[in-house]
Design a binder for these strands. Structure first.
Lengths: 342, 342
DNA sequence: CTGTTAGCGCTTTCAC
DNA sequence: GTGAAAGCGCTAACAG
């Protein structure tokens, strides 16, 4: 067991008290230049490193922020986390990441665990649980992607409903009337909002919402793929598909290609790798997970710095990027699309 | 400031000592059933939660493991982290994730920071730095994807060299002689090994290694894309490309499609989303980041459980998955490939 | 089975 | 500018 160098050791070596050594370590100016030098020398010579646990215990908060997402493996959340980690490191904060994997009880357990660690703050993608007890906490919390249930807090989201409306309007403009909708469970707020935008656009165009064209049980690409297959097997298949999430888009794309039905138009909410390489290239609503992460971190840091103002609701706009698949006309084909898209 | 419930409060409420309450909390059997009940009742009534910082300080280690990867946003590492997090949570451990972003000094700073937090163990993708000082530490460390410099420790890697050899042999078997190689910097061990496998296969086939067909400066997809472009512009372009990493494969694929040169064969070390949807579908060496994460976590846990045996070197095999792009013959085209591949 | 004492390593009083 | 004492909340050591 290698002996740990403590602050008192440094103090002894520098012929001063632990408190003064502590002052030097923490950059307190009220130390004479001479003493400071002696301490710094001792720190280097002994190879002293602050014990962050002891410091955090004494200070009452840990220099760590907790991040809770749905799945770390999801490229979207991975990008969000990465950005948060970058911002945190610049501030000298550690990041503990956890995933709720959509298990409500796990979600609460995880959040509680973070509190027990006295994290300085949290950034959470809320799932099903009621986390309103967090409102009574000192610990600042910023929610991302979705709103928490039953209480007001800082939230950063995308313009889900507006974006979906834009996408479906786009398809309508190209002449589509039978537009399928593929999404995750409507229990999830983002799905719900995107579905609402889909309905908005159809209604304002006087196009009826048809149940057989709506699949809202696609938790992953595999299910989205099967549902797309079902669509294709309808007596009157859709001429366009709006996929509400990158993950589901992968499934839709796969099936359209498997069945060689790339004459069917498609727009994806959320970009994904190779979307621009496929033929036709996939028209997407571009949302920046990096920006989401950055804004959430900024909001949290503002709270850590003492911002006590009312909860802020940040909505990030999304942008339609036409690439071909969204510009296919009903009964048209990929060739037409490529031309129309450019 | 909400008053925190301490263990002593629970003890008082249960009419016992802090130590006994502590025993109950920690499941120590040497407590009478009656006392135990009283304590448990008090815990619930007061809403007591252990202070993990205080516990960790006292115990000397934190119930946290540190994970250092190159980039959290990389789907490969994201999958590794996700799997580690799952395993850790099952053991009641937290996970602090950090990325070195390929900055050597940052790498050391990060690892030191984790030590200062007294993490129970670490899982590290080593980059350039010499981390051999970790050898003298009590903290167990498992390295993933690459070996650390200058010391022996548990390592979990893929069969990089063997896999690359397999891939290139595969292309040679289909008649290719001008096979390009695209990878990241050879400073990185995985790139180096995959390059070695590439050279192995060419040499055993008596095919010379041509410098103009080797690009080892592709840190990301964008560079890989440009290098692929350079290849295509050669007087005598390659008839096949072996890409040593999923990330670079994205760039290669993009350029081949941009230039409509999907008659050129290609194999990717590492699978990626939609690889099977492209036409031709991309032949890959399948490596499982999940398995890598799981095995690394298991190794670390074994060490945490007191395993003091010699360092273990785990090599995970990779599997060639023919999908079409790797079965294109020189001078052939995508159609031929699709047929040959099935 | 239970309790007392001590102390993890640091920083916050508060005094000098 | 400096330092002594106290204690963050918990648990290891050692009694009883």
């Amino acid at each position: 067991m290698k002996k740990l160098v403590r602050l008192s050791d440094v103090a002894a070596a520098a012929n001063t008290s632990a408190k003064t050594a502590s002052r030097v370590i923490n950059g307190d100016p009220r130390v004479s230049a001479e003493t400071r030098l002696r301490v710094q020398e001792a720190v280097v010579r002994l190879g002293y490193r602050v014990d962050l646990l002891a410091r955090s215990l004494r200070r009452g908060v840990d220099d760590t922020i907790g991040v809770v997402v749905e799945s770390i493996a999801d490229p979207f959340f991975a990008a969000v986390i990465s950005e948060i980690e970058l911002a945190a490191l610049r501030r000298g904060l550690n990041v503990i990441v956890t995933s709720n994997r959509r298990l409500p009880n796990r979600e609460v357990a995880i959040v509680d665990g973070l509190r027990q660690r006295r994290v300085a703050g949290m950034i959470i993608t809320p799932h099903a649980s009621d986390l309103s007890y967090l409102a009574s906490t000192e610990t600042p919390v910023v929610f991302v992607d979705r709103h928490p249930r039953n209480f007001a807090a800082d939230v950063v989201t995308f313009d889900d409903r507006g974006g979906a409306r834009t996408a479906v309007r786009h398809l309508l403009r190209y002449g589509h009337r039978r537009i399928a909708f593929v999404s995750d469970d409507l229990e999830i707020e983002t799905s719900r909002n995107r579905h609402a935008g889909y309905v908005d656009a159809l209604q304002e165009a006087g196009v009826p919402v048809v149940a057989e064209l709506v699949a809202t049980d696609c938790a992953d690409a595999a299910v989205a793929r099967r549902r797309t297959c079902d669509f294709l097997d309808l007596d009157e298949p859709p001429t366009a598909v709006f996929s509400a999430r990158s993950e589901t888009s992968l499934g839709v794309v796969k099936m359209l290609h498997d069945r060689k039905r790339t004459d069917i138009a498609m727009v994806s909410f959320g970009d994904f790798a190779l979307a621009d390489v496929l033929s036709p290239a996939i028209t997407v609503l571009e949302q920046s997970p990096e920006l989401l992460g950055r804004l959430a971190a900024e909001r949290l840091f503002a709270r850590l710095d003492g911002d006590r103002s009312d909860p802020v609701n940040t909505v990030i706009p999304v942008r339609l990027v036409p690439r071909g698949s969204g510009e296919i006309i009903p009964g048209g084909d990929a060739e037409t699309a490529a031309v129309a898209g450019s």
